[in-house]
């Protein structure tokens, strides 16, 4: 059905003319997404930037199959997304851990839900917690962890069942610059060669450029896509690339879209 599109592999995700309106308590209609068109190639890393309130989380939740889309189509592997999928890992903007479960037990939640064998995954869960820098915190409860630590538990949880598609909503928002950079590198390391497709929402333009094959730039109210930028920086990416001229040009291009808004970190 997509013979006319000259691409090698059919897209994993394709959104065409996607709209979403919320009805608020006082009976008003809020247009959260308007006429969204994009494609995500399998195995690629796509980031989404846009000012607060432009509909990034909304888009992510529709893609995760937990929020009904409005008009338009949103397909995954050629079929409309009608609900959540076992092959998807999600990280919400807030950590959303279960306070009565330890860090380790929280990471195992998707395994329990999908009945993949809890005992067989305990070592893997420990490994993931070590990877996100939480060695020794496996048996702590969320109330005993900092916000950034909780968010990292959430990242480990999204990876435990080895999903093909990762949907991450500002996963590093609560982290300091240093931890954030090391988490960026760690995420790229996991992604490289894994065949996973990642869609990551961020407020940080440099982070968006650093991680991505493609950056989707959104504008606020009603949330629409202003530009999709291909990032052709070589891989593997190194932190030193952030100070190169091509990197600077890309971030400048994106920043120009938000010139007057000042809504994003630099």
């Amino acid at each position: 059905m997509n013979d006319k599109v000259p691409v090698a592999a059919p897209p994993l995700i394709r959104a065409t003319g996607l709209n979403k309106t919320y009805a608020t308590q006082d009976g008003q209609q809020i247009i959260a997404l308007s006429d969204i068109d994009f494609e995500i190639a399998p195995g690629s890393f796509v980031t989404v930037v846009g000012p607060s309130g432009c509909g990034k989380s909304t888009l992510l939740k529709i893609m995760a199959g937990i929020l009904p889309g409005g008009t338009g189509t949103l397909n995954m592997s050629g079929r409309p997304i009608s609900g959540p999928s076992r092959n998807v890992g999600v990280v919400f903007q807030a950590p959303v851990l279960l306070p009565w479960r330890t860090a380790l037990e929280n990471v195992l939640v998707p395994i329990e839900i999908q009945r993949r064998g809890r005992t067989a995954h305990i070592d893997k869960a420990r490994g993931l917690l070590r990877m996100v820098g939480l060695d020794g915190f496996e048996d702590k409860y969320p109330g005993e962890l900092s916000g950034g630590m909780q968010q990292r538990v959430g990242i480990a949880r999204a990876l435990i069942h080895d999903p093909d598609l990762l949907l991450m909503d500002e996963p590093f928002g609560a982290l300091d610059a240093m931890t954030r950079e090391s988490m960026n590198l760690e995420l790229l390391r996991i992604w490289t060669g894994s065949g996973k497709t990642v869609m990551l929402v961020t407020h940080s333009i440099p982070e968006a450029v650093f991680l991505a094959d493609r950056v989707i730039v959104m504008s606020p109210r009603p949330g629409r896509i202003t530009e999709i930028i291909d990032v052709d920086l070589p891989r593997p990416r190194r932190l030193s690339m952030m100070s190169t001229a091509p990197f600077g040009e890309l971030t400048d291009t994106i920043r120009r879209h938000f010139g007057a808004l000042g809504a994003l970190d630099s």
């Binding site: 609900g83 939640v109 999908q114 069942h161």
Partner: peptide, 17 residues
């Protein structure tokens, strides 16, 4: 909290789960 329910559903939890 809505977030917690949504997250469980995102990981394909059933109503009972």
């Amino acid at each position: 909290p809505r977030d917690q329910v949504e997250l469980m559903v995102a990981f394909t939890a059933s109503r009972w789960q």
